[in-house]
Design a protein around this nucleic acid. Structure first.
Lengths: 210, 210, 210, 210
DNA sequence: CATGAATGAGCATTCATTCAT
DNA sequence: TATGAATGAATGCTCATTCAT
């Protein structure tokens, strides 16, 4: 076959990424073999290597994407939020994760469950893969900074206590998000509303109905 | 009757577990080979199989132990706590993780860093290993319940708002602990004091110096 | 009628042969892949297959050519030589190999070093490739016969001992040429003058300065 | 199986080396796969890796051994030779190669034909494998020096012309040996007697009957 | 009991070749 | 004609596990 159009190439790449994500989500990065991915994508064993130089590169693509896709809505939310209390921020952030699917850069629909499972595995992976660690840390920082900014705006508007140090407060918020995410995916604790209600109670002193 | 005393057998098993933990912590469950573990323990390639039926079983032993060793001090703390606010609980819990080493059942000293790295990997592992998931969920529930009880006692003593639903509030506390643990081990954010100070500010409205 | 002129076709074929020779010389017949050759030639991966049915055929083309290009000057020399002693023949032959480049049938300049490296590899290849062996043996015989004839003329002119059996004596000359060629390319022993001086001493009894 | 005796281990290693040599001799270094070697040796696919870290290492063992086994008799001969003319040296050297088999360090009998075929391939290999090149160059130098010494002794005894420069003269002798070896293995020219007769004629001026 | 040699399936990756466009 | 995407068999190597000694 002659030269493929860039669109078709991108589409095929996305198909391989999608297949890899399904495999990784189901079996883990290291229990998934390259033939598994190729079979899931319905292509030959050699085909993925036309799009990725190595399995490592596929892992990096999935790992980077997972965090981006999960936290992009949170970041957008933080950028928009005005006069939001901490509980408001966390509540809104967790609500963006209550959807079934998100849409990736290529317009493909990706189940959030798949992303979350890949995200949890990325935490393992970054312990000894510097490229993954760098990408993950970058994504973490970006979201954390967005939240810190939102906290500052919240302080200006009087919705957040002046005594909160925004940079570190944002770490606490990130901790809550990660903590919830883990409970949801690892222990099937999917009651978002209950979780956010109690955050509200604990932080604002009263349980504002959602 | 056994050719070696139960004590010696237990000691050797502990040595293998320790070696496996060092390997897993360094290289990950699936990047560590059985020969790696045997070499680290200074025993022959076949030796681990006299103590564990398979690699899976070693992973299970480490994974179960990791959570237990990390959260046992937290659980003891929750059981003792009287009139503790949420922030007090989290602060105290995180302080128990600020030590260098903990002591396992056999009296061996285990670096906390090793345990934390194994714990993060266990989150991945439990996604597809039911035995690991069951053990982890059991440990999670046990600690969560302990914290819920502490919250109830806190409410009785007036240190925790009555509006908090203790079972779910405990989930939030667990989320904060896991979230901090992840940041510490994955992103090198080790500033425990800053983290707990801001939790205190966010929850109690003022930053009580520790 | 062809869509491209025979000249252009021949030129492109020569380009591919040149690229293959550079690759083979650098990496060896079997460490060079077809994509390597195509890339070196700056053509598409499929292009070489319009000029050669298989990699084997390219190897055959290079292997045959290598011996021809190296020994053609020797053959011409032997054909011209009058009253040459054995040492004269060897000396003159090795001198034709002291140039930097030779010109192939298509008029392209080819580094001698490249040819020599390909020639050494051809010796390996002919051990199990009958087509290569036949081509190489043919070339060997042709040069050997030329030298045998030169030895006969040398005997007629009194420059070569009558006791030499020309057909076998030519084998000895060929052996010296191959032996020198190997030392030059494999062990970096490039002192042609020293080598021929000693041949002269050994054979003629005195070291005639070249 | 428990620890094997060093003798048995060495024997098995020798078996694998022997199998590899047969494969390499028949199919070439790079046309032989590791499974081929294992099958030829009658062991499992993984077994060779208990004796050699990589295929490269097996190649190195074979390549180094081939030269050693072929030229050791020549070296011993050169060390013993007294008052030998150059033709005597070459003649004697080539005669040591007229046997069917030689015996390796472990006492195993190895067909000379196999060694010669491996040697020719080693010439290719050393062009881009530095370890092989170093080993081959070392072996070459050792034999060359032995011959140079023999030439010096020949000069002292009057059997070799004073005008010969021993170090370089030894290069010529090596060239003749390699040249003959190549003709024998590549072009089936096995007439050792004819070759050495003509060397004698060319060098000493008369054909001394062997 | 302990050893460590042996097994053989499995993996990531490459590459000669084909052929739709 | 020329392209380069696709194929799929093959390769070097690893490793969980077994078991003869």
């Amino acid at each position: 076959m002659p030269r493929i159009t860039p669109e078709r190439r991108e589409a095929k790449r996305a198909e391989i990424v999608g297949a890899a994500r399904r495999c990784f989500s189901r079996d883990g990065f290291h229990q998934t073999s390259m033939p598994d991915i190729a079979a899931e994508a319905g292509v030959s064993a050699g085909a993925p290597y036309r799009y990725f130089a190595s399995k490592e590169e596929i892992i990096l693509a999935i790992a980077g994407d997972a965090f981006r896709l999960i936290f992009e809505p949170v970041e957008r939310l933080a950028a928009r939020a005005r006069a939001a209390s901490v509980a408001d921020l966390v509540t809104a952030a967790l609500e963006t994760l209550s959807v079934e699917t998100v849409t990736d850069a290529a317009g493909n629909s990706v189940p959030v469950e798949e992303l979350l499972r890949c995200a949890v595995q990325t935490w393992s992976e970054l312990l000894r893969n510097d490229a993954v660690r760098a990408r993950a840390a970058e994504g973490f920082e970006s979201v954390r900074r967005g939240i810190a900014d939102a906290l500052r705006r919240g302080q200006a508007a009087g919705a957040v206590a002046r005594t909160v140090e925004p940079e570190r407060g944002a770490r606490v918020v990130m901790g809550l998000l990660h903590g919830f995410l883990l409970q949801r995916v690892a222990f099937d604790l999917t009651d978002t509303a209950g979780f956010t209600d109690d955050i509200r109670t604990l932080m604002d002193g009263d349980p504002t109905p959602r």
